[in-house]
Amino acid sequence: MPLENKELVNLYRTMLTIRRFEERVSKEFFDGNVRGYVHLYIGEEAIATGVCANLLLTDRIVSHHRGHGHCIAKGADIRLMMAEIFGKKTGYCKGKGGSMHIADFGVGMLGANGIVGAGLPIACGAATAAQLEGKNGVAAVFFGDGGVHEGEFHEAMNLASIWKLPLIFVCENNFYAVNTPSKYAIAIDEIYKRAAAYSMPGMVVDGNDVVAVHQAAREMVKQAREGGGPSFLEARTYRWHGHFESRMSTDSRPPEELAAWKKKCPVEAMERKLLAAGVLTEAQLKEMNSQILGRIEEAVKFAKDSPFPAPEDALEDVYST
C-alpha cells in the first residue's frame, strides 16, 4: 500500500528536523558551547525516520551512541534534547547524560547508549514487556555495523528468536566502525545474512530511501505485532561527519566516497520526490524549512537561557527514592 501524501510529508519533516537539529548542534559544538562526544547522524536520517514512523507512542526503542535521530523520530522534545546536549539542568537527564545518553521514557525512547552493542539485551527486555502486556506492542533497537560484532548482539538475537519477541533489529550499516571498514570486520559477506543463523527474516534496504525503509520496517512491525517474532533490517547508509565532532579529525575514509554518498542525500532525494509528485511546492518546502529552523532556534535559546546544574546536583539521582 503506497503511503499517503500526508505520511510522505511527515517523513520528510522528521528527516529535515533531524538534519537541521544536528547541523545546529555541530555549529554549537565548534562555537564552544557543547562539550564531550557528539556523534552526528547526518546522512543517515532516513533510517530512524522510516522505522519509527511505523511505531506508536507506546512502542519502545533503544538507541546507540548516534542517537539524536532516533530521539527526534520517536517524538522527543528538541528543547529538552538541546538543553541536555548543552549540559543544562533543564535537559532530559538534568545534564547528567549529555548527547550520548538522551532518553525519554515518556515517548518510549529508552535511551541512547555509549557502549557498542549494549542496547540489544535491553531491547529484548523492552520487547518482553510488550509481549507480556499483550497489546500488540513492539520494540525496535538501533545499532551500527560495528555493534554486530559484540557478544551482546548474538545473545540478544538468539534470545529474541527463541522467545519470539516483538522486536525489530535495525542495523545502520554506514560501512565503518570509526575508521574500520565493515567489510574487513565481518567473516561473512553481508551483515543481514546473520539473521538466518537465528531463524529470523533478514533483509537489506537502501538506508537513504526513507520510503523503502518505511516499507521494509512496516512488514517487520506488522509481523511482530501479530506474534510472528523478531526481524532483522540492515539499512545501508553513510555518515557525513567524522565519527564524532572534533577539531582534530582522524577521519581516514576516502573523500571521494563521502562525495558520492552526499549525492545520495536522503533528505534531498525525498525533497525531489515530493516536488516531482506535486505533493509539496517549493514555497511549501521553504516554509517548512523555516518553521523547523524556528523551532531549533527556540530550542537553542531555551538551552542557552537554562541554568547549569549546581555542582552538588551531581549527588542526586544515583538511586530512585
Partner: peptide, 20 residues
C-alpha cells in the same frame, strides 16, 4: 534463558524500564 548472562542481565533492565 539460554546460557546468555548479558542478555539476561540486560533484558532485566529493559523489562524494568518498561514497568515490570
Amino acid at each position: 534463558t539460554p546460557v546468555s548472562e548479558s542478555a539476561m542481565v540486560g533484558a532485566a533492565i529493559g523489562l524494568a524500564g518498561s514497568g515490570y
